[in-house]
Simulated assay, not measured.
Amino acid sequence: MMQPVKIRILSTLKDADGSLQNTEQRYQGTMREKDGKYYVMYHEDAQSGLEGTKTTLKWDGEHVLILRSGTVDHRQEFRRGYIDKSIYVTPYLKLALTTETSYVYTYFRDGVWHLEVEYTLHHGGSPYGDMKILIEIEEDIQVGH
């Protein structure tokens, strides 16, 4: 059964110059659990620059997968020590990305899922920056009650 959820995504990019860029995004979505894996689906908005894209988060105890389809097509997998090679496809260009995950931690506390991921992103063979992402997923009790 799909359950309505509120999603909050905090991300920090430390670029090659060492400067920090923080963003926060909030979405409404749905969540379900199947065979010990969790799935959250939501639609990106204009603020993210990915309007027209559906994002699916899938996770278990040791890995997080982000799937995007629509305006942007991309599959990115995070697992500690794992190097993920992917192609980020937009209507205008294709970017070859390499994601080197240093940290993944998923836990459920006080009714909220926390997905923490830290990784280094490379494109075109050179480092783009170090990313830290915190995704909080909370049941949306106002919807449907």
Rank of each mutant, 00 (worst) to 15 (best):
L20K: 11
L20G: 06
Q21Y: 13
Q21H: 15
T23Q: 14
T23M: 10
T23I: 06
E24S: 11
Q25H: 15
Q25F: 14
Q25M: 14
Q25L: 15
R26M: 11
R26S: 12
R26A: 09
Y27I: 05
Q28T: 09
T30C: 03
T30G: 10
M31T: 00
R32Y: 09
R32V: 04
E33Q: 11
E33Y: 00
E33I: 04
E33H: 00
E33V: 04
G36D: 03
G36E: 02
K37Q: 14
K37W: 01
Y38I: 13
M41H: 08
Y42M: 05
H43L: 13
D45V: 00
A46G: 00
A46L: 08
Q47H: 07
Q47G: 11
Q47K: 14
Q47A: 14
S48K: 08
S48I: 02
L50P: 01
E51I: 02
T53D: 06
K54F: 00
T55Y: 06
T55V: 13
T56E: 14
T56N: 09
T56Y: 00
L57G: 04
L57I: 11
L57N: 05
L57Y: 12
K58N: 10
K58M: 15
W59N: 04
D60V: 01
D60K: 11
E62D: 14
E62R: 10
V64C: 07
L65M: 12
I66V: 15
L67A: 12
L67S: 13
L67M: 13
R68G: 01
S69D: 14
G70Y: 05
G70K: 03
V72L: 13
V72C: 07
V72Q: 08
D73K: 14
H74G: 07
H74F: 13
R75P: 00
R75M: 11
R75E: 15
R79M: 11
R79D: 06
G81H: 06
G81T: 01
Y82N: 06
Y82M: 07
I83N: 09
D84A: 03
D84H: 09
K85F: 08
S86M: 07
I87G: 03
I87C: 12
I87T: 15
I87M: 11
V89D: 08
V89E: 13
T90H: 06
T90D: 08
T90Q: 07
P91E: 07
P91W: 04
Y92A: 10
L93I: 10
K94A: 10
K94E: 14
K94G: 02
L97T: 01
T98D: 05
T98I: 07
T98L: 06
E100Y: 00
S102N: 00
S102G: 00
S102Q: 10
Y103W: 06
V104P: 03
Y105V: 02
T106I: 04
T106M: 04
T106A: 05
T106R: 00
Y107V: 06
Y107K: 12
R109Y: 08
R109K: 13
D110M: 04
G111D: 00
G111L: 01
W113D: 02
W113F: 11
L115R: 12
L115T: 09
E116G: 06
V117C: 09
V117A: 09
V117Y: 09
V117F: 07
E118D: 15
E118I: 09
Y119Q: 02
Y119D: 02
T120F: 08
L121T: 03
L121D: 10
L121N: 04
H122E: 13
H123Y: 15
H123G: 10
H123L: 15
